[in-house]
């Protein structure tokens, strides 16, 4: 016979021990639990580079500051911030996401940290047609397209090719996705032949090929960082902004395929 009261008490104690162990493990990774923690709300697509930036920042700050990153889709981050009003910094996939919060006085104007541009991501063995823009609506290829309503890239590409053309591309799509990572993953898994993503997203999937469309390259989307009005430690937040816009951060970003305003200026010179 089971004794419910005793059993549940024992289970609850085991549970608390496990939760404690998990916390303990974390303290071992970052033995600075009592130090100020900066919570960065970050676009999920930026996770690989952000993880690296976070570690580099903590090292540079002499481990005086901890960084916790909350990854979600950019639109979701913005919507939830209106309700949640917590955290110190926001890094969305595109600076126009910040604008909504700037208007509401929930964060300051974003400072650009990197740029990316839309491109096509294809499987290596794909035979290339003459014009990709036509091919995307020909129905000859299976395509994965970001939704223009949810993903920043969708809006940008729609503004380049024209809304009607983009609607045609979306209508012809095998699947339309909320995030570029899902699109890239579709191509990576061989679910589709071609997708539209950022050049930086494609960079994360070494098994795929990146294909630049000439018209698209000039249309850069900028990623920025804002200090949220909910921050408890403006000084630490400012030091983080200074770090991610600085030299060492730029090197990390470049390694992940992100370009910067400075790089663009250099490229533009003959």
């Amino acid at each position: 016979m089971i004794r419910p009261a005793v059993t549940s008490l024992i289970l609850a104690i085991i549970a608390l021990v496990l939760i404690f162990l998990a916390g303990d493990r974390q303290r071992k990774i970052q033995p600075l639990a009592s130090r100020p923690t900066l919570t960065v709300l970050c676009a999920a697509g930026l996770a690989p580079v952000m993880d690296e930036l976070k570690t580099a920042f903590e090292l540079e700050a002499g481990r005086r500051v901890r960084v916790a990153v909350d990854y979600k889709g950019s639109a979701q981050l913005v919507a939830l911030q209106r309700v949640g009003k917590t955290g110190d910094l926001l890094i969305a996939a595109d600076t126009h996401y910040h604008q909504h919060l700037v208007e509401d006085g929930l964060c300051n104007a974003p400072v650009e940290i990197a740029r990316q541009h839309p491109c096509l991501i294809v499987q290596p063995q794909t035979i290339h047609p003459e014009s990709w823009e036509d091919a995307l609506i020909s129905g000859k290829f299976r395509t994965s397209i970001p939704k223009s309503s949810q993903a920043a890239i969708g809006r940008l590409v729609a503004s380049i090719v024209g809304n009607n053309q983009y609607r045609a591309i979306t209508n012809q799509a095998t699947v339309s996705r909320e995030t570029v990572t899902q699109v890239a993953s579709d191509v990576d898994q061989g679910v589709v032949d071609v997708g539209i993503t950022w050049n930086t997203t494609a960079h994360q999937f070494p098994r795929t090929c990146t294909l630049d469309v000439p018209d698209w390259q000039a249309h850069r989307s900028s990623i920025g960082v804002s200090i949220l009005s909910s921050t408890q430690d403006r000084q630490a937040a400012e030091s983080f902004v200074k770090f991610v816009t600085g030299q060492s951060a730029r090197a990390i970003l470049k390694r992940h395929g992100y370009s910067s305003a400075q790089n663009d200026a250099v490229e533009a010179q003959p």
Binding site: A44, A47, D51, Y71, S185, D188, Q189, Q204
Partner: peptide, 8 residues
């Protein structure tokens, strides 16, 4: 998070 980092 792993899916978002492309680590299937």
């Amino acid at each position: 998070l792993e899916l978002n980092s492309g680590n299937l």
